[in-house]
Amino acid sequence: MYFANGRLSGSHGTAVGVAGSDAAKPVRSGWATAGQFLNLVVLVIAVFAALVLIVVPKATGSQTYTVLTNSMAPKYSPGTFMVMKPVSFDELMYGDIVTFQLHSGRPEVETHRIVGFGATQEGEKTLIIKGDNNGANDADPVRALQVKGKLFYAVPYVGFVANALGNADRDLWTKVAAAGLIGYGAIMIFRSVRRSRNRDTQAEAA
């Protein structure tokens, strides 16, 4: 009787162990699914960031700038990453946001909104500019040769990273970031395909 009870007890214990293992499978499967979803989200964000911050500006010949002051707040606060697309001076309209040289031929630029149009005594068309957060229009009108581009789109806060990289190395870091994002995307796709094949192999073996 004792031996029989021992066998019965051992058999029962084995059954419990198998049941516990089976119960753990859905948990592991759930974590795997969550991990795959997280990888997909990260991949989508990486691809979107590469397109918005690197690919599109390069493809459209746009220039990128970072807002440094509160003159365009609250919509375009300091740290906003702005992509300015080249545009014909005659295409500019009231309300457009433009980046322009403070003085023709010099590197210092500013980004404000067009609030009107004027002309020089010689008949040259000019822009009347104002910062959204400023109480008055800019003192000097802006000529066509000062305009660097019209706002294409803007991304909040990203400009802080661009400034940290520095103007001189920004192009290099842009290429490095593009390569890194593309490489990361390729790795995520490869891992996803490999996991899918492993699951198929395990299913066939079972």
Rank of each mutant, 00 (worst) to 15 (best):
N163H: 01
T33G: 07
I189A: 04
R170W: 07
V109Q: 03
T14W: 14
R7N: 14
S9F: 10
A32N: 12
G183V: 02
H103L: 03
Y2G: 05
R199I: 04
G116F: 12
M188R: 09
L43Y: 14
T69G: 12
I129V: 14
V47K: 05
W173Y: 14
A139T: 06
A168F: 01
G166H: 02
R106A: 13
V55W: 15
G13K: 11
F81M: 02
A23R: 02
E124P: 00
L68V: 15
T60I: 14
A186N: 11
Q202G: 14
Y76Q: 05
R28T: 15
A32Y: 12
N134C: 01
V47C: 09
I97N: 05
L172H: 13
M1E: 14
F152P: 01
K58M: 06
F3M: 05
V44W: 12
K85T: 03
K148A: 09
L68T: 15
A206K: 10
L38K: 11
A15F: 15
S192D: 03
H103C: 02
A205T: 14
A19D: 12
A32M: 08
A177C: 07
A179H: 05
G79M: 07
L172I: 09
R197H: 07
S77M: 03
L51M: 13
F117W: 12
A73L: 00
S104I: 04
A164M: 13
A136N: 03
Q146G: 13
V193P: 09
A177H: 09
T126H: 06
R113W: 06
A186K: 02
K25C: 04
P57L: 06
V158F: 11
M188H: 11
L145I: 15
F48L: 02
V47T: 08
S192L: 00
N134P: 04
I114P: 04
